[in-house]
Design a protein around this nucleic acid. Structure first.
Lengths: 338, 338
DNA sequence: TTGTAAGCGTTATCAG
DNA sequence: CTGATAACGCTTACAA
């Protein structure tokens, strides 16, 4: 690999001149510029990022932390972040924490001496009980650019993008209520996750209109994968065979619930109306297509990146907290209860 | 941020001593070791990766290039690579090329001066016509560690992990033939992709047993997403309403085909037997569950990482080319044609 | 065993 | 406007 020294030597100028040229700091005379260009070309030189990073104390590297990249929502968000970031010349380091906050800690800490330009952290399990407070606090003190997506954000410390899961679950549940359902079950996500907790609140708020005390409400703690959806559905139906409507948090668990109902020979929506929180292709594709309350998460990644970018360049933002509102997609898995 | 200098000063030793301690190059006397540990602790010091990288001319950063991280197969592979890599202390830069080879070129080139430890490239569109030859050749010359997954690999230049899509499609087609089908349609992937091309060969090989000339074979060029699967199925059925069996390459296109058939009121497997190449949860979940010929792609990422690791540490591998064999999962979407 | 100093490839300061 | 040269934070000969 040729260095800036080699280029300078070959062009017959000083390294600083080449450096200036590279950083377009100044208008050099046509003549020297040509010499430099030629030398760079002949040597096939390109400046070393690491050396550059060492002196400038920054890099063009972003870190994106997700609980599970193989989950459709997260992989879409990451894709959009990467796409936006790439346009600005940033590269993205992906950290998959496997829903393990210790791993998250470790990963972030191991990167903290690499002049990372900024971080985007996506909601993780146990976020509610232990919002990585120590690390985040430290990052804040150090002034490191951090943006949060669907994450517990005490004291509103960091800019964030939030999907209003409270409202989404409220809407979903109210939809069933409007259709005449009274015996409505809710399969939550892992309640140590910020947005899952909010969803539960939304469910309770909606149910409060038709049910006097909370203890009557039919709630089973679920999770974010297919398997959890299957098992939770089974459990819920066993304990509460009277349900006519089912609200399921998270896309994958919804598909799990769908699968379980089909397997049990329970007809959707004849026997049970099924509605999910979160929108994916999957919900549209199964038969019958599933009614969902979802978000246009094509925007999430880009919005989060934009926030981060503003943070990095020190530009003030119009709004530090972006809350995305849900939309209901009525398909064929819910019916009027006569 | 404290530097190694600060630590040395505080501990009352030379920087080199601290460096030696950090790199465990030597056994220091208990006494000085304690002093250093204390200083490090008090200053909350951790060594700067960038500076380290500059002198060592290497880094703990891997680059993984995929055509589309939002596709289930790729996101699973990336997850496994990340997991394995993280155990060895590597971080992973994710490049999503959006199936654009120019973007791939650009991304890789922009990273070539960052002392990247190694690269894993996953099969992309146009790989067949233009296997990024210039860049890859250059990388080979420079001795940069590169591992390929499902990718055109002229002259067997790089270690690789391959899913035998030829065999998979052969098996799928033969399964339908065994069930008595003769009018079998095939929806390919994008034929500029290496493994899609192989799949087509597999289909033709199987069909050769029951069909004299190739021009009789029913083939429609498809793609890798849901939408392409839907459109290709529509087109195929329009031109060839006589088909009783359908082989679909790629997981997502399979689901698209399923969806289209359902929408058209075509019963699976009564009217048409449907079989897919590639295994995902989706195929298991829809009703009826779909027969597939798939791969245990839980292994792919880890295997590729292992190859790369060996390349990086200069360890010779048992096998440079790992070919993963498919397995048939017979479910309820194929039936005996009476 | 420990310390001194050179150097990794840049950028930035400061003379000329 | 250009050219030496000192950083940046670390590793590693080489010397003591």
């Amino acid at each position: 690999m040729a260095t800036i020294r080699d280029v300078a030597q070959r062009a017959g100028v000083a390294v600083s001149t080449v450096s200036r040229f590279l950083n377009k700091n100044i208008n050099l005379p046509e003549k020297t510029e040509q010499k430099i260009i030629r030398a760079i070309d002949e040597l096939n030189f390109s400046p070393n990022k690491v050396a550059r990073s060492l002196v400038s104390k920054k890099s063009e590297i972003l870190v994106v932390v997700v609980p599970d990249i193989s989950s459709p929502f997260f992989s879409h968000v990451v894709k959009d972040i990467e796409k936006s970031a790439h346009k600005d010349g940033f590269n993205v380091i992906l950290c998959d924490t496997d829903n393990n906050l210790d791993k998250e800690r470790e990963q972030i800490n191991s990167l903290r001496n690499s002049f990372i330009a900024g971080y985007i952290l996506v909601g993780a399990i146990d976020d509610v009980n232990d919002p990585c407070g120590d690390i985040l606090k430290n990052m804040q003190e150090k002034g490191e650019p951090v943006v949060l997506i669907d994450r517990h954000n005490s004291d509103n410390t960091f800019p964030q993008v939030i999907h209003d899961k409270y409202l989404a679950t409220l809407m979903a549940t109210e939809h069933l209520i409007r259709l005449g359902h009274r015996q409505i079950g809710f399969i939550t996500g892992d309640l140590r996750v910020y947005s899952a907790l909010n969803a539960l609140k939304g469910f309770k708020a909606a149910m409060a209109n038709i049910s006097k005390n909370e203890s009557d409400m039919i709630v089973v703690e679920g999770g974010f994968d297919l398997d959890k959806g299957i098992r939770s559905t089974e459990m819920l139906l066993q304990k509460h065979p009277q349900v006519t409507g089912l609200v399921v948090f998270s896309e994958l668990a919804l598909i799990g619930a769908y699968n379980k109902l089909m397997e049990m020979g329970i007809s959707i929506p004849q026997d049970i109306s099924l509605i999910g929180i979160g929108e994916t292709d999957l919900a549209k594709i199964v038969q019958p297509p599933l009614t969902t309350v979802g978000f246009d998460f094509a925007k999430t990644g880009e919005l989060a990146y934009r926030q981060l970018k503003n943070l990095i360049v020190g530009k003030s933002m119009d709004e530090r907290n972006i809350t995305l509102k849900p939309e209901i997609f009525i398909r064929s898995s819910t019916r009027f209860l006569d």
